[in-house]
Amino acid sequence: MRIGVSLLNLRLAKMGGFEVFAKQIVELLPKCSKNDEIIFFVNSSNREFVSEKELVIEIPWSENKTNFFRIVEAILPNFKNPINPIIYQQKIDIMLYPHQAMFPIGINVPSVIVVADIQHIFFKKYFKLMDLIFRKLVYDRAIFKCNKIIAISQFTADSLLTNFSLDRNKIEVIHHGFSDSKFNIMNPVAVNEPYIYYPAASFPHKGHRTLFDSFAFLKRNKKIPHKLILSGMRNKFWKKIIKYIDEDIKEHIIDYGFIDYNKVKYLYHKANVVVFPTEFEGFGLPVLEAVQFNKKIICSRLSIFDELGVPKQYQVDFSNQNELYEAIISETPFKLEKKPLSWEDSITRIYNVIKETAI
């Protein structure tokens, strides 16, 4: 079987947890079967993401050109995408689209898409009108056209069933994975004080402003000795967020922005506590990453964190400074109440869905 994997939507250093997931797809999917060929479709901007040892078809388009054709394809459903003949030449039996949008969408072979969330339906206020229109055109079409949907959580699956007329059997729930591999310190960053760590892209729903307000309260009242360390992709919205950091608090906050994942792991490793004040998540990889490094993680009160097994004691209202403080100083050992999948198990389950869908 020849399995095509479209990574044409991948924008390096701009997509947060999806990039972590995509890396696991690239590394582990080819190991699932020696009898199949995995062909990764990339563009000129993300070619480096896939190892030279893998089968790769590079579309000679920049990220901007790829985005242009994505828009054209969304607006013109009958558009003949110039990528289509390239894919047909590879005699693909089935396509995997790991990031919920199918690009190109006009390939007439069985297809599986991975859906992380449908946040744009729940939080329209965080999206520009053109983004909402684009997502509706692209995501809705993909959800109905594909043969199988892999939802990364039961929460996402339930959201899809509530908002779209779908056969429940079309959706398979497969959680992201957990890595228990030994930690290898590489490219460490210099941190010599106790700190709270928040790894997240600067999207509006990630709750940075609420965290800044509560952290400032705790520091001014000398409740905690910690600094607040941040990392993650930074977009235009970040300039608005950091305006809410008061001058007397700035010295206690360090933002590394987007950094190499080895440095992210080091920051997890040295953190006293990890926080996740998000308003919405389809999954929440920082939960499993914190567990990998035996760290307590304090999360918002969301159903997805119940699904992952985060103890109620460590789900708080981040706008309530006392709740946050009690969770930070708690000496109750942190342990997930549900056993996570390994990345190997997660990707193997995805492979099995691909194989079953191709038959």
Rank of each mutant, 00 (worst) to 15 (best):
F123V: 02
Q154N: 03
S33Q: 05
Y351S: 07
K335R: 11
K222R: 13
S153D: 01
K312A: 09
V291P: 03
I38T: 09
M102T: 07
I133A: 14
V42M: 10
K136E: 04
N184H: 11
F276I: 03
I297E: 05
K14H: 13
K263S: 15
L28V: 03
L12F: 09
I75D: 11
I359F: 12
R11T: 02
I150R: 10
N320E: 01
Q292L: 05
R2F: 11
L324Y: 08
N46F: 08
W61D: 04
Y268N: 12
N352G: 00
L12M: 11
I174L: 05
E193R: 15
Y314I: 00
E19P: 02
F69Q: 00
R70V: 11
M233I: 03
L324H: 13
E27K: 12
D180Y: 14
N46R: 05
V310C: 00
P194H: 05
V115R: 03
I75N: 09
G16F: 01
R70Q: 12
K223Y: 09
F144G: 00
I25W: 10
H269N: 13
V191W: 12
S346H: 12
A142Y: 05
I107F: 12
Y195E: 03
L10E: 07
F49Y: 04
R2H: 08
F49L: 08
K23I: 07
I59S: 01
P311R: 05
R301V: 14
D345K: 14
H226Y: 06
R135S: 10
L166S: 04
F155M: 13
